[in-house]
Design a protein around this nucleic acid. Structure first.
Length: 608
RNA sequence: GGUUCGGUAGCUCAGCUGGAUAGAGCGUCAUCCUUCUAAGAUGAGGGCCAUUGGUUCGAAUCCAAUCCGAAUCACCA
């Protein structure tokens, strides 16, 4: 069992494209023909259908080895009998077959692909599922003591993209955010502000609010380290000094006051958080994150207490002598886990159980996806298990979309040590680079200032988003700030460029066309085949919650189009028929690139 | 120590429900703008798919063991 291959949702009826699904039909036909020829029952799913390798003749290949033994036929005999039977079975679709060492290659008829090209439109390339679900995607989860960094960007882009992909299938998606706005770390920046700010505000220093507050979090840590060093120099042990540092004690007192609802503390807390939220809003707007509902931990941290009582009654939980409450998960291969402290307060897992129930009551979703880093894999495993044992209605719908950390070549990012790649800085840098590149190419000289600004944003963010989404979410990734993110090759701008290039051609040729049958050249057919795969890619990305599948697909499609573009002229095609056919392929490719990139949260320009 | 996830070209990554000669991008080298946008295309070079054993007609892919790296196993969140 490999948990990394867990399928998010198995749709009873997944979205099917408007055209006949060739692969499904090939499998079915194989099973039918084997039944007819040899009277042996085979499940269509057992049949392996691949795209034929370019060095062989054909479009799709059926692998015969699996049946050779079962049917007691040589690969050649089986191939010939099956090939002939299937061509009769799928008349008009299959035209030819050949056999190479147990691989049965079929050529699909020109008419089939032409029909696909003719009937496809930007609007029917994707169709929606007949069994839509209501799905919550919780992502972003910022802390209010520091600004967003590169890791948050991966989270935000992933969450957004997953939501878009699920929407493409016709599901209803509810995007939510849980803000970690309380706790000792928040008090640390608060006390540092009290000590060092002299009443300064973000407006005074002309800073974004989240950065302003983040600076005090760093100042706290600097002061803390200095105090500890001083105490150690005065003869204390390191351990003692870490406990006794005055600023640390101050933060703890402040947390106590906060929990007691002390007016002055609450005022300061609200004030500083409002600065941070202002900063976050700017960033979210810039990167395109939004939420239907934002939950605040200051409101949710006491949740789950009732559920502890229920759990005790149901004997899911048990109480220790010191009156703390636990659950024993050793039977499930995990540990014992505390769910309520001896003083009666909730722990992290308890509030999450409570929050899961609150969200379920408020939105009544079929599933809830938590976009959270892989360091919390264990936590979410436990969360789901406890919810299931409590028989909460939300339990089975909990999915943890676990993603790997973004690391620097020097190792993990640490905000306390200042080794973080700041989200705002990085976004700005990307936009700046896209500006420089665009200017040096000089292709948009007629653009007005506002158009240029929009274009730089589109390209800069496109490069950044694509960079973070093109790799498998569950893998950790390394970001090297020394090497800027690329604009060539397997990148967002490459695909944006291909789209703009197609649009440029279509502006010249017009799109008012009527199609008449013509022979398809290999590159034309190749594009048609790739376009016909779009729905399957979206389905797979949704089932595995993996946007990188879409990134890879859009890249391959763009690459294929660029080869096509290089070899064949559209505007000056050999004949009017060819010209119209290629215009149609251009329309479909541009639309597919646009939708695919949209699913990654990336816009594509008309011109660049 | 237990659990989980990784190890594929110099670098960053695909491929992993077993199938034909393991693929991209970057970087390197070489071609192609008087012809629809060169942020492009074409080609060359680059590999003991961590190691060993097993299953199979067939293994990067499945199984077992080993080595290396990461995360986690808090009355922090």
């Amino acid at each position: 069992m490999n948990s990394s291959k867990v399928i998010f949702i198995n749709y009873f009826c997944i979205a099917q494209p408007f055209f006949m699904n060739l692969i499904t039909n090939l499998k079915q036909s194989t099973a039918n023909c084997i039944q007819q020829l040899y009277g042996v029952q085979i499940q269509p799913e057992q049949v392996l259908v691949n795209a034929t390798k370019p060095e062989f003749e054909g479009d799709y290949t059926i692998v015969l080895f699996a049946f050779v033994k079962q049917l007691g036929k040589s690969p050649d005999t089986l191939g010939n009998e099956l090939g002939a039977a299937m061509i009769a079975d799928m008349q008009g679709v299959l035209t030819n077959y050949n056999i190479v060492k147990g691989f049965l290659n079929f050529t699909i008829s020109n008419a089939f692909w032409f029909d696909f090209i003719k009937n496809a439109t930007p609007n029917n390339l994707l169709s929606t599922t007949s069994t839509p679900k209501k799905i919550m995607v919780e992502y972003s989860s910022p802390n209010t003591n520091k600004p967003l960094h590169l890791g948050h960007l991966r989270n935000n882009f992933l969450g957004w993209s997953i939501a878009e992909i699920l929407k493409l299938q016709g599901n209803e998606v509810v995007k939510t955010c849980i803000v970690n706005d309380r706790g000792i770390h928040i008090c640390k920046s608060m006390i540092a502000w009290q000590l060092f700010a002299n009443g300064a505000t973000p407006a005074d220093t002309n800073q974004k609010g989240d950065h302003f507050v983040g600076d005090y979090y760093v100042k706290y840590n600097d002061a803390y380290k200095a105090q500890v060093a001083e105490l150690v120099a005065g003869g204390m042990t390191q351990e003692q000094a870490e406990k006794e540092a005055p600023i640390q004690k101050g933060a703890q007192e402040m947390l106590l006051k906060w929990e007691q609802g002390d007016a002055a503390t609450m005022d300061l807390w609200k004030r500083m958080n409002s600065w941070v939220y202002e900063g976050f809003d700017t960033t979210y707007k810039k990167i395109g994150s939004d939420f239907v509902k934002t939950y605040y931990e200051s409101n949710t941290y006491l949740l789950g207490k009732e559920l502890v009582e229920q759990g005790l009654n149901k004997k899911v939980f048990y109480q220790k002598e010191d009156s703390s409450v636990w659950i024993d998960l050793t039977g499930d291969g995990l540990d014992e886990k505390i769910v309520r402290r001896k003083d009666g307060t909730s722990v992290y897992i308890t509030q999450d159980i409570g929050l899961a129930q609150v969200k379920q009551k408020e939105f009544n979703t079929d599933a809830s996806i938590y976009v959270v880093g892989d360091e919390q894999n264990y936590h979410f495993k436990v969360l789901k298990l406890i919810c299931q044992k409590l028989q909460l209605p939300a339990a089975d719908g909990i999915y943890h979309l676990s993603y790997g950390m973004v690391e620097l070549p020097t190792g993990k990012m640490k905000s306390r040590e200042g080794t973080v790649v700041d989200a705002d800085d990085l976004v700005e840098a990307m936009i700046q680079i896209s500006k420089e590149k665009t200017e040096s190419l000089g292709k948009v000289s007629e653009f007005k200032e506002a158009q240029l600004t929009a274009l730089y944003n589109t390209i800069g963010l496109g490069a950044l988003k694509f960079f973070l989404l093109r790799v498998d979410p569950k893998k950790k990734m390394i970001f090297n700030p020394e090497e800027s993110i690329d604009f060539h090759g397997f990148t967002g701008p490459f695909i944006q460029y291909t789209h703009a290039r197609i649009k440029s051609i279509l502006r010249k040729t017009g799109t008012d066309i009527s199609l008449t049958v013509s022979e398809l050249l290999p590159l034309e057919k190749g594009l048609a085949i790739e376009l016909s795969n779009f729905q399957a890619v979206i389905n797979e990305a949704a089932e595995t919650l993996d946007p990188s599948k879409v990134a890879i697909y859009t890249f391959n499609l763009a690459k294929l189009f660029n080869s096509f573009y290089n070899e064949l002229s559209i505007a000056n095609a050999e004949s009017e028929d060819k010209k119209n056919l290629r215009i149609q392929l251009g329309i479909l490719t541009a639309a597919t690139l646009q939708k695919g990139m949209r699913a990654l949260g990336i816009e594509v320009p008309e011109q660049m």
